[in-house]
């Protein structure tokens, strides 16, 4: 397979572009996605290639962006809607939660809603409390939605293509601070990563660390550091939160007996708690040889000051220390 190094952002663009070339029912709309190329430049060049019929600027109207996507999807298109910041998905909640997620079930299986809602989450850009949240857990709580959080450029491409081809509403959470991160991306236009399939990013035996999105590179850095000190860390990236690759997680915990969970979102009510509970309920329980540890964002709104902002999410040092503590039975 041919690979090319590109940024996370370009991988997202490539996935959309390939799918739009392949299927004319795929269209993109959102605020400033057209000529401007999107607030983060993700759709740069697409307006030029596909024109205003398929790459559409919308008014600043998140509710109707999401609802319009659902209505278009249920009538035969495969729309990709962009919400400029994940924080603004709150305005689109009725369309996502009450409409898109429910239609198939409440109509007795007679409808399908093949839409993707792309939105960038996460802090680290100095955008403060209303432009920096990681709200993925909100969507995970709604049956009918799928939730994807890619952590690498290749995953971004493969997962977005799968999301566009999926016949369900998919919330595709991109990571602002990863947009410029580079990685090798398969150029095959049939490179599709099935939703619900995680990936073991590092094989290890002493502890399982589950992470996704922005925290994944930090976890990998900590794991690689500790390998030199003889600590073998298995890093599991579920990649999609709904559906979740439970089998991969359970198998890994059974192997290592220890589990650390790392994400950026606030700890309370976060998805890490869900994974933790799932593991506790599973056959992996009897293999647990240490308390399950969560490293997550502090339960505060995201502050502006750069030092404060950096302090609310797990650092590489904190991740490394937590791994050492858990592996040596100190926690």
């Amino acid at each position: 397979m041919e690979y090319k190094e590109m940024t996370y952002k370009d991988a997202v663009n490539l996935a959309m572009t390939e799918e739009m070339r392949k299927d004319e029912n795929v269209i993109l709309f959102g605020e400033d996605v057209g000529l401007y190329g999107g607030a983060f430049g993700v759709s740069v060049g697409m307006f030029e290639e596909f024109g205003p019929e398929r790459v559409k600027d919308t008014p600043i109207s998140e509710a109707v962006i999401a609802g319009c996507a659902a209505g278009a999807a249920v009538t035969g298109l495969r729309p990709i809607a962009e919400i400029m910041f994940m924080d603004f998905t709150t305005i689109a909640m009725d369309a996502l939660v009450n409409q898109a997620a429910k239609m198939r079930y409440m109509f007795g299986g007679k409808a399908q809603v093949p839409m993707v809602l792309r939105t960038p989450g996460g802090s680290g850009t100095g955008a403060a409390a209303q432009h920096s949240q990681s709200l993925e857990a909100w969507f995970c709580h709604v049956p009918g939605l799928k939730v994807v959080v890619p952590g690498t450029p290749a995953d971004a491409k493969g997962l977005l293509k799968a999301a566009i081809r999926d016949n369900n509403p998919v919330v595709f959470v991109e990571q602002k601070t990863l947009y410029k991160e580079k990685g090798e991306v398969p150029m095959d236009d049939e490179f599709v990563i099935p939703l619900g399939k995680g990936e073991i990013k590092r094989e290890g035996s002493d502890v399982t660390v589950i992470s996704y999105g922005r925290m994944l590179p930090r976890v990998l850095e900590a794991a690689d550091d500790l390998k030199k000190e003889g600590i073998s860390v298995e890093v599991v990236d579920p990649r999609t939160l709904v559906p979740l690759d439970k089998e991969m997680i359970i198998d890994s915990v059974k192997k290592t007996g220890k589990l650390i969970l790392v994400n950026e979102a606030c700890k309370t009510g976060g998805f890490l708690g869900e994974i933790s509970a799932m593991v506790s309920e599973s056959e992996a329980f009897d293999y647990l040889d240490a308390p399950i540890v969560r490293l997550a964002g502090l339960d505060v709104p995201v502050p502006y000051n750069p030092e404060l902002e950096a302090a609310i999410v797990p650092s590489v040092d904190q991740i490394r220390q937590a791994i050492v503590d858990v592996v040596t039975n100190k926690r």
């Binding site: 509710a63 659902a70 209505g71 278009a72 999807a73 249920v74 009538t75 009450n98 239609m103």
Partner: peptide, 29 residues
């Protein structure tokens, strides 16, 4: 939630105002 897509009925909606944006999407199609 009575819906019959075969006759163009995209479904009744329990949320007041829930149909406005869906209608836009259906019209976009």
């Amino acid at each position: 939630h009575i819906a019959d897509l075969s006759v163009g009925n995209l479904g009744a909606n329990g949320v007041v105002g829930g149909g406005h944006s869906l209608a836009c999407g259906a019209a976009l199609t």
